[in-house]
């Protein structure tokens, strides 16, 4: 049971990560295509605030504050009772609300599969492609050193 709970948490977190990185337009488009409901009661927000980004001295040492970033959050409750949250970089309130509803829907066993396949999977695939493309473009700038030998000895 503990294992299942941990897996569920990891999956839920992964969904949140995918939605946070997606554009509001992409989420709204897939949302409409999948015919997901956006009927939900707003318990908090959507509201924009600041999160202070922390780094570590030397990369791995003691934490220090680097600067702030805008973050928008929302909390919703579905008619079926599930409460969903969202926190994401930026100021897109519509996106934050949809993401909170998605989180709530995901917790409903009857809806989870739809959220995963119709919304999250296409976003995740597109993000993976973008990441791989960027990695490959960076890899093309990798320096291949060669040594020139001069003379006979």
């Amino acid at each position: 049971m503990r294992g299942q709970e941990a897996r569920d948490q990891a999956d839920r977190k992964a969904v949140m990560a995918t939605l946070a990185q997606a554009s509001g337009d992409d989420i709204a488009r897939l949302w409409n295509e999948a015919g997901l409901t956006s009927e939900a009661e707003l318990l908090r927000g959507p509201e924009t605030g600041l999160v202070t980004v922390r780094g570590r001295i030397g990369g791995g040492g003691a934490p220090f504050n680097v600067g702030e970033t805008t973050v928008t959050r929302a909390t919703v409750r579905l008619p079926t009772g599930q409460v969903g949250h969202s926190y994401m970089l930026g100021r897109d309130r519509k996106k934050a609300k949809l993401a909170a509803i998605a989180d709530a829907l995901w917790q409903d066993p009857a809806q989870r599969q739809t959220v995963e396949t119709a919304l999250v999977a296409p976003l995740r695939a597109a993000q993976g492609e973008t990441r791989e493309k960027r990695r490959a473009e960076t890899a093309a700038t990798k320096v291949d050193f060669f040594t020139m030998v001069r003379g006979e000895d």
Binding site: E47, G49, L50, V51, G60, F145
Partner: peptide, 30 residues
């Protein structure tokens, strides 16, 4: 910035796990 509420402090970022777009060293070739 001063007009926004504060939600908190992030966990420290891990630059070792960065999706690197540029990385050079002047001390080690390989």
């Amino acid at each position: 910035r001063t007009t926004l509420p504060r939600f908190g402090y992030s966990n420290p970022i891990d630059t070792g796990a960065m999706l690197v777009e540029r990385r050079v060293s002047a001390t080690y070739k390989d």
